[in-house]
Amino acid sequence: MPPKSRHTQTSPPSSSTPARPAPSSSSSSKASSSSALDAQDIVLSVWNKYLEKTPQRVKLLDSFMGFLAVVGVLQFVYCCLVGNFPFNAFLSGFSATVGQFVLTASLRIQTNPENKAEFESISTERAFADFVFGSLLLHFFCVNFIN
């Protein structure tokens, strides 16, 4: 893709404007189902490309995100059906799921080799350490909030 080369030409790497955002990736099983509106072959090609290009580790992360999305949806449905009586508990459970989801997505984005240009200050190990830090905070708040 062109943006990469243009990116390096026009601006210093550190902070100034990327004319067009560099390739990024984010995925979830929920999202893939929503794009099913379009033609089937597009979905298929996306799927195939995903299968062949994505490293194993990233696939692991993706499956975890998929699991979180499912849990989140289940919680939401339960809340709609049964009622949200201990609202604190529901809220902390739900936000734990959402928070963990976005943190994992961030980790996935950061560790994706395609995004190397965006995150040159962040190594894979650093990204993982950040992920652990964020998750610890998240769960601390959740436990505190659940009562």
Partner: peptide, 12 residues
């Protein structure tokens, strides 16, 4: 100007 950096920082 969407960038993954924005995604990471904002969502976290």
């Amino acid at each position: 100007r969407y960038s993954p950096r924005l995604y990471v920082s904002y969502t976290s």
